[in-house]
């Protein structure tokens, strides 16, 4: 990742992916979560906050399409103090706000660092979108694509930038597979064919194991980020 390039803008807001804050401190690791509507992005964000909030200084940015539902859900569930959750309005186009024009999201992450920092990790949730919606590398350092078994077991086969290139693919709601007739083995084989060595986690937030494998993946990303700073 070319995040450590020299930045000539030494004052005021840093420009997108600079790994350092204007004051020279290293900024928080930013992880994006995208995927189709209702696949379990907010539920995963909430679970990650609960799993990680005692070990990392966390904040969340949500990108809703036309409401503040995601932010309000997280507030209601009290997964983090309210000042650590910011909602960005996307003008009917979440993929624009996370990829083509990331300025509002960058502002949100910078304001969070200014107001509640120092932060270790910021989770950026995209509004539910289509299979081509991915995050700009100017906004996030790593991205997670969340699909679910109920959206059709042919989604991994169809591929698309999210399924194919995300740093982590989550296939969520495995508890529902037997009710909707989804073939998990086939999904796993198709995902492997599309993604090669990139990791895939099959998850059910209704199970005992819950978000643990994804939380471990996040911990590993954070450890690598922190090590690069040292």
């Amino acid at each position: 990742m070319h995040l450590d390039h020299d930045h000539t803008h030494s004052d005021a807001a840093a420009v997108s992916a600079d790994a350092h804050r204007p004051d020279g401190r290293r900024r928080a690791l930013r992880i994006g979560l995208g995927g189709p509507v209702g696949s379990g992005k907010t539920a995963t964000v909430a679970a990650l906050c609960r799993a990680l909030r005692d070990e990392l200084s966390l904040a969340v940015v949500t990108n809703d399409i036309y409401t503040r539902e995601d932010a309000e859900f997280l507030l209601r569930e009290a997964v983090l103090p309210p000042e650590r959750i910011t909602a960005v309005e996307t003008g009917a186009c979440p993929h624009t706000a996370i990829r083509d024009d990331i300025s509002a999201n960058l502002e949100a992450v910078e304001d969070l660092e200014d107001e509640v920092g120092p932060l270790d990790l910021i989770l950026v949730e995209s509004g539910g979108d289509n299979l081509t919606a991915t995050f700009s590398r100017g906004l996030v350092d790593a991205q997670v694509f969340v699909i679910d078994v109920a959206g059709g077991d042919d989604i991994p086969r169809k591929g698309g930038p999210g399924v194919t290139t995300a740093d982590l693919l989550i296939v969520n709601k495995t508890d529902l597979a037997r009710y909707v007739g989804s073939d998990l083995a086939r999904m796993a084989a198709d995902a492997k064919a599309q993604r090669g060595e990139l990791p895939v986690v099959f998850q059910s937030l209704r199970s005992e194991e819950h978000v643990a494998p994804v939380a471990d993946w996040v911990r590993a990303r954070y450890a690598a980020w922190a090590a690069a700073a040292a």
Partner: peptide
């Protein structure tokens, strides 16, 4: 103001200039 802040970020990245830097300093 929000749009001004966003444009300032894009403008500084696209056409770096001391005047834009000064504006960003004066209006964080």
């Amino acid at each position: 103001r929000k749009l001004g802040r966003q444009l300032l970020r894009a403008g500084r990245a696209t056409w770096p200039s001391p005047e834009l830097d000064a504006l960003a300093r004066a209006f964080p």
